[in-house]
Computed example of a mutant assay.
Amino acid sequence: MTALLRPRPSGCPTGARPPTLVAVAHGSRDPAALRTVTALVNAVRALRPDIPVRLGHIELNRPLLADTLEALRGEAVLVPLLLGRGHHVKVDLPEAAARAGHLTTRIAAPLGPHPLLAEALHARLSEAARQHRTPHHPKTIQAVVLAAAGSRDPDAAVDAAATAALLSARLDGVPVVPAYASAAAPTVADAVRTLTSTRHSHPHHHPRNIAVASYFTAPGRFATQCADAAPGIAAAPLGAHPAVARLVLHRYEQALAGAPLSYRAVTVGV
């Protein structure tokens, strides 16, 4: 996976200061959220100390994105720590970039879908399964609910479904069903109920073998709500997993390799 990282951003002459990578988090009232995204930003810095990296939040936490952009000069690439297309990526980020008229800006694609996220989700599920395993109940995962925030934008559901397929492949074909905390159906609780009723007919299936994968960058109200709906295994959010840090840099590099720097240039792709 390290092949995704190049020694210097595309289009950056030797000796020139690379554009600032602005990691854009949503924000949460949960104090663990700020700690988590700060750890992720620090992991990105450790991978590429030559790139200036800053953090900005859409709401609820400081620094706010507007304040981060106001303090910058030159060029910046906004990398959303968001997992699919939706209002924040399509509207909020371009508007924030447009207001920062003193900067030359570009907006990278959201983190998902991408195989690196499937790698991180798989790792978090494995960690949770190990924690729940007992001699009498090995907690073999037989189905997964991919718990996402949810959006009214249909592209967000397309992206979640693509991630579910990637995770299922990573789990050697274990079924993975996307579900949502808000604004879309099914809810996580409904998805768990459907999978539970389907599996009751098989003598070796147990509801506690249905796991909930937390498709959230950091802890927060929605992540907690989704974990509470898990009948057994509930994975932690993605957090500062090394694969996520590599993906942040990959999206930054993708953006620099794309169209001319402009807040209108929203790169979307895997």
Rank of each mutant, 00 (worst) to 15 (best):
A3Y: 11
A3T: 08
L4M: 13
L4K: 10
P7I: 11
R8H: 12
P9G: 14
S10E: 08
G11R: 04
C12W: 15
T14E: 12
R17I: 03
V22L: 07
A23Y: 10
P31M: 14
A32N: 11
V37A: 05
A39C: 15
A43R: 14
A43H: 05
V44Q: 14
R48L: 06
P52Q: 08
H57P: 00
R62Q: 02
L64I: 10
E70L: 12
R73A: 06
A76M: 07
V79G: 01
R85T: 06
V89W: 15
A96R: 04
A98G: 08
T104P: 03
I107F: 13
A108Q: 10
A109S: 10
L111T: 02
H114V: 09
L117M: 04
A118P: 00
A120Q: 07
L121N: 00
S126K: 11
Q131N: 12
R133D: 14
P135C: 04
H136K: 05
V145H: 10
A149Y: 07
G150P: 10
D155G: 05
V158P: 05
D159G: 06
A160W: 00
T163N: 07
P175Y: 07
Y180S: 02
A184N: 00
T187R: 07
R193H: 10
T194H: 05
T198Y: 03
T198F: 02
R199M: 05
H200V: 11
H204A: 11
N209E: 11
T217L: 14
P219D: 08
F222E: 09
A234F: 12
G239H: 08
P242S: 07
L249F: 12
L256N: 05
P260F: 06
Y263T: 15
G269N: 13
